[in-house]
Amino acid sequence: MHLDHGHSHHGAVSADAHRPDGTRRALRIGLGGPVGSGKTATVAALCRQLRDTLSLAVVTNDIYTREDAEFLLREAVLPPERIRAVETGACPHTAIRDDISANLEAVEELEDAVGPLDLILVESGGDNLTATFSKGLVDAQVFVIDVAGGDDIPRKGGPGVTTADLLVVNKTDLAPHVGSDLGRMARDAAEQRGELPVAFTSLRSAEGVGPVAEWVRERLAAWTAAPAPTA
């Protein structure tokens, strides 16, 4: 081998909190949940709320590549160079949990290309209730369900509902129309999740994503307040 044997951290450890130059990398938050629950709308609303004060970027994991990325581009929530789509080979849960390598490439490339970043949102493809993010990929995860999907989803549990760092119950404005009982959803969620927080949102107004944005800011404050990185 005629190679330089100099040591490099590049891409070595997925959960490493540092970039190759020793600086702290961006906080990575995953957003998962069933199809149609409003993940992409939540990501878009978060971008609009946070983009003026934070440097952020988005990675999408579509079933069909680029659909969600293109929604975000159309909505112009972020400049195009801050949005990356990852192909998932028809298995979005694999790309965020079992083989996270393509997503790790995407988040690192974003940091290299437009960094330094404060926050990267990783949106999963619409999947089922069991799909959760690997801790090797994200630092915290949000699970988005909606009232129209049935008010028994919190009771049914599943890894997303029970273990996500934040459970978002979206489309609360629809509750009266679909006969969902928000009180029951809150009680069931509390039973499943213990101390873990739940946010009820309606994205019909621009401020609707407020509770999620607030939670993200808290996570970010905790992330940056953690002991200074040692390269």
Binding site: M1, L3, H5, G6, H7, H10, A12, V13, S14, S101
Partner: peptide, 18 residues
């Protein structure tokens, strides 16, 4: 990335750096 986690090795590190 996966190989370096599975089988840490200076030759792999060098190849990654190159």
């Amino acid at each position: 990335r996966a190989a370096r986690a599975a089988w840490p090795d200076p030759e792999l590190d060098a190849l990654a750096a190159a």
